[in-house]
């Protein structure tokens, strides 16, 4: 972790998961940095390693550059969550904050990437990128949730790009921009007054032979097949709780990779 220009932070947290050869998953690298601390949270019986990202500070602030990298080796099983929502706040710097997540999942490996929502606080400016490289037989469950503003406040500026490649080819590439600086973001084409948006991506080679059928989950949520063995739940909602409910319903409405069932704590 380095400090630049007063309060801005540059930090990179890193995580490596490997099959331990005995049916389990080892974590040879578990290196938090700056605002991001990584904790191995529990060992499960099915060979899966679980890690929780703990936000040691209220990050990211304007001007910060933080990164989080996870590599899941062949045959390994990793589940990553976070202890609390990530809160984007204005910093002393007028510069935007940058938060880059890079994930790679090798053949036969499974990654569940299920962080808590990102909250874009009034006055904040965050550029987030999530880049995922999947091997041909890798499996992935990835959730992204954006809450626009803390209760009753207008949101900050938020741009979040999710780019997923599978076997070297583009599978999903989406950039969502909300708040000041994103013209029309609150109009009927983009959010239409909703304050929570999210998506849940499931990639599984099994979808090659049994693709998901497009289905409406509610007036503002849909599950659809991508061009490739993947399903995407897209949803907008008035708040984070309703959003999570729709994403969970999409995930649990049909078979999905691994044996894990995602539940929302009451």
């Amino acid at each position: 972790m380095t400090h630049t220009g007063g309060t801005a932070v540059r930090a990179t947290a890193r995580l490596v998961a490997e099959a331990d050869g005995r049916g389990g998953t080892a974590l040879p690298v578990l290196a938090g940095d700056g605002p991001l601390a990584l904790r191995r949270t529990r060992a499960t019986g099915d060979g899966e390693a679980c890690v929780t990202v703990v936000g040691a500070m209220s990050a990211p602030l304007g001007g910060d550059h933080i990164a989080l990298t996870a590599d899941v080796g062949p045959g390994a099983r990793l589940r990553v969550g976070s202890a609390a929502a990530t809160l984007a706040l204005p910093g002393r710097s007028a510069e935007p904050a940058h938060y880059a997540i890079r994930l790679t999942v090798a053949d036969g490996a499974t990654l569940h990437w299920l962080p808590e929502p990102l909250i874009s606080a009034h006055g904040s400016d965050l550029r987030m990128t999530t880049t995922v490289e999947l091997a041909p037989t890798a499996r992935l469950v990835l959730r992204e949730e954006q809450i626009l503003g803390r209760f009753g406040e207008p949101p900050g500026a938020l741009t979040s790009r999710l780019t997923v490649h599978r076997a070297g080819r583009p599978l999903l590439d989406q950039e969502l921009s909300y708040g000041p600086g994103a013209p029309g973001w609150d109009g009927g084409a983009v959010l239409g007054g909703h304050r929570a948006a999210g998506q849940l991506l499931v990639v599984d080679p099994a979808y090659d032979s049994d693709p998901v059928q497009p289905r409406l989950l509610s007036d503002t949520a849909v599950i659809t097949p991508l061009t490739g063995p993947a399903a995407l739940v897209s949803a907008v909602a008035t708040d984070g709780l309703r959003l999570r409910r729709m994403l969970d319903e999409g995930l649990n409405s049909r078979p999905r990779p691994g044996r894990c069932r995602v539940r929302t704590p009451a």
Binding site: T163, D173, P214, A221
Partner: peptide, 20 residues
């Protein structure tokens, strides 16, 4: 093509599937 924008609108996507 990674250099090209990928700007998306959730409601356009969701409503298009409803409309279909």
């Amino acid at each position: 093509p990674g250099a090209l924008p990928a700007a998306a609108a959730p409601l356009l996507d969701i409503a298009a599937e409803q409309h279909a």
